[in-house]
């Protein structure tokens, strides 16, 4: 009876682990599948001209350079706004705020902000940034809207990273006569930096890929010139892909579509990779 029981447990273990492994493999396979599919369909259209030229002949020829640069501006702008604001919020919540009503209201707001559908953000951006503040369809409006979307991710990732810094680091700093702020700035924040960067990478990818928030606030199908100021509208990769997929029926568009998708996913993976390299460097040096 006892031996039987043991045998049974062993089977369970094997079966459960097999299931988990399957789940993990399926996830990896989904990513590999998408990337592979895009490479097969789109790699042919990637060339230096494709990356560096403007579209020509109603999008059927030329490249997608303005859309790449537009996505770059929008993403960088969103990070520039969201990172300091989000980090400051996280530092306040984790290091300064006393538990209480205001604290819970802020936390609740952050959590709910994360749950708002992106198209709502787009419409809010249109109503508030574009119309009310008069910023127009522009890089600025789009960046601000994207910043709102990625703030919750940055806040909760940063807060998590800050909370993981052991009490012993803080104690060591206080014991040397450091003030609260000196401790946060010189010890806690640097030690939390790798975790903060990880959270920011995720939001970076999100900002680059969102379509709905920028379609009302920043993106246009075609621009004659590259943007010259924050108040100019831009082309952007996700919107470009959406338009190519829904508007055009021309055969010549098909490879351009896949090519654009491949560039977008490459851009996101590239940015993530860069952030991971920076994080590894910081972790290795530990010399802040």
């Amino acid at each position: 009876m006892k031996a039987n029981n043991l045998k049974k447990r062993k089977y369970y273990t094997v079966a459960v682990f097999a299931l988990f492994r399957l789940a993990a493999l399926l996830t990896a396979a989904a990513l590999a599948g998408i990337v592979l599919f895009l490479i097969i369909k789109g790699a042919g259209s990637i060339s230096w001209d494709f990356l560096s030229q403007s579209p020509a002949d109603s999008m059927t020829k030329g490249g997608i350079f303005p859309a790449i640069i537009g996505t770059f501006y929008l993403t960088a702008g969103a990070m520039l706004v969201a990172l300091p604001l989000g980090l400051a919020t996280a530092v306040y919540l984790s290091e300064y705020a006393r538990p209480g009503r205001i604290n819970s209201i802020i936390r609740l707001s952050v959590a709910n902000l994360a749950g708002v559908p992106s198209v709502i953000f787009g419409l809010f951006g249109l109503a508030f940034f574009v119309t009310k503040l008069g910023l127009g369809i522009s890089i600025l409006s789009g960046s601000l809207t994207l910043a709102l979307i990625i703030m919750p991710t940055i806040i909760s990732a940063s807060e998590e990273a800050l909370k993981q810094i052991p009490l012993s680091y803080r104690e060591a700093s206080y014991a040397l006569g450091a003030s609260h702020w000196q401790t946060v700035f010189n010890v806690v924040l640097p030690a939390a930096l790798p975790g903060i960067i990880t959270g920011s990478v995720l939001s970076l990818a999100r900002a680059a890929g969102e379509t709905a928030p920028i379609m009302y606030t920043a993106a246009v199908f075609y621009t004659l010139h590259l943007p010259s100021s924050l108040f100019d509208p831009v082309m952007a990769l996700p919107y470009h892909i959406y338009k190519l997929a829904t508007v055009g029926t021309h055969e010549a568009l098909v490879p351009i579509r896949y090519g654009s998708c491949l560039v977008l996913i490459g851009l996101v993976l590239g940015m993530s990779l860069a952030a991971i390299i920076i994080r590894t460097k910081i972790r290795r040096n530990k010399q802040w």
Partner: peptide, 30 residues
């Protein structure tokens, strides 16, 4: 100010994740 005048060594070694130099220089720099 009191903690500047009274030093403390803890139960478990707790150096900062900084360089050796910066660990020692931390207090004087503050």
């Amino acid at each position: 100010d009191i903690r500047r005048r009274v030093g403390m060594v803890f139960q478990k070694p707790n150096p900062f994740p900084k360089s050796i130099f910066n660990n020692v220089a931390y207090g004087p720099m503050l």
